[in-house]
């Protein structure tokens, strides 16, 4: 049977790759790079057979004319980013296979009980997928299953549903009748106001009060309370893009609310806060090493 061997939450700011080409990146960006490098090494050690990647699409293809809440990509291959993202942010291409049997399993078994996932055979991975994949698996050699989430266009599912989806996807993965080692990359962010009047608040306050409290809840606080508090409306009040944090709640559902094995929070006056969480195989499966 398939088994979860690694779960990580990482940011996907599209300016990260170009920023890292600079000779001396600012301190918070250097910390962001170091965190990605650390996780890249751990992911390699976990030797997964497949990467399940969950992230938002940023209105790049799913738009208000046809908006899925949760969608599984089941084409033969997954590639990205969009031309306009390459042009505007200097992102490089990423192209890999899709683990079609697992994608099909999630759809077929999911609809029976858990979730009516939308699905697509024609899609592009936007920066929400390409940035984490490029940073964590630059070899482009592992098959993926992309899970697109709507975190931008209301109505957006509340945290309780993202969490429940994580619980459900774990159950579905563990019922998959192939001996696969599955690593999960979820990508989102902490407080974030891209496009809004508070977009540069991090210059004065690299971490908002919400960031500090949320980080504390993730490590030592009441996870149930955190999940319940994370509605789109409440997150929107913390910055118009903060609902991207919902994807981290998906990961909490996957790991059974376990405390992270490792974490890092890169913050400074030069970027929105970048939160990294990792659960290793022993923690995910309830065995402390």
């Amino acid at each position: 049977m398939a088994r979860l061997v690694e779960v990580v939450c990482v940011p996907h700011d599209p300016t990260i790759p170009a920023g890292l080409r600079a000779a001396e990146p600012p301190k918070a960006l250097a910390e962001t790079r170091d965190a990605f490098e650390h996780l890249r090494g751990r992911l390699k050690e976990a030797s997964p057979d497949v990467l399940l990647v969950a992230a938002g699409d940023h209105l790049n293809q799913w738009f208000m004319h046809n908006m899925p809440q949760f969608l599984i990509g089941k084409a033969p291959r997954a590639a990205g980013p969009f031309d306009h993202e390459r042009e505007l942010f200097g992102l490089d291409a990423y192209d890999t296979e899709i683990e079609g049997a697992l994608a099909r399993h999630l759809l077929d078994r999911g609809v029976e009980k858990h979730s009516d996932f939308a699905y697509s055979n024609e899609f592009t991975l936007d920066h929400g997928f390409v940035v984490p994949l490029s940073m964590l698996r630059p070899e482009q050699d592992l098959p993926v299953v992309p899970l697109f989430t709507n975190v931008m266009a209301p109505p957006v599912a509340p945290g309780t549903r993202f969490h429940a989806l994580g619980v459900a996807v774990r159950e579905l993965v563990e019922r998959f009748d192939q001996d696969l080692r599955v690593a999960v990359i979820t990508s989102g962010h902490m407080s974030n106001s891209i496009g809004g009047p508070r977009m540069l608040d991090f210059v004065k306050d690299p971490l908002s009060e919400w960031d500090r409290r949320t980080w504390e809840q993730l490590h030592d606080g009441d996870v149930g309370e955190l999940v319940a508090e994370c509605t789109f409306e409440r997150l929107y009040e913390q910055g118009n893009g903060t609902a991207g944090f919902l994807d981290y709640l998906f990961a909490l559902g996957l790991v059974g609310d376990a405390r992270p094995t490792w974490s890092a929070l890169a913050a400074g006056p030069t970027q929105p806060p970048a939160g990294f969480l990792r659960w290793d195989e022993a923690t995910v499966n309830g065995v402390r090493a």
């Binding site: 599209p14 209105l59 042009e87 496009g195 009047p197 977009m199 540069l200």
Partner: peptide, 30 residues
């Protein structure tokens, strides 16, 4: 949608830069 508005302005500016962001956010103050 703020994100769409930002990307619209970003496309017209031709690419990401901090001066672009500062100008954009400056227009939204208050």
């Amino acid at each position: 949608h703020p994100f769409l508005t930002y990307n619209f302005a970003l496309r017209l500016a031709g690419g990401f830069s901090m001066p672009f962001v500062q100008d954009y956010v400056g227009q939204l103050q208050g």
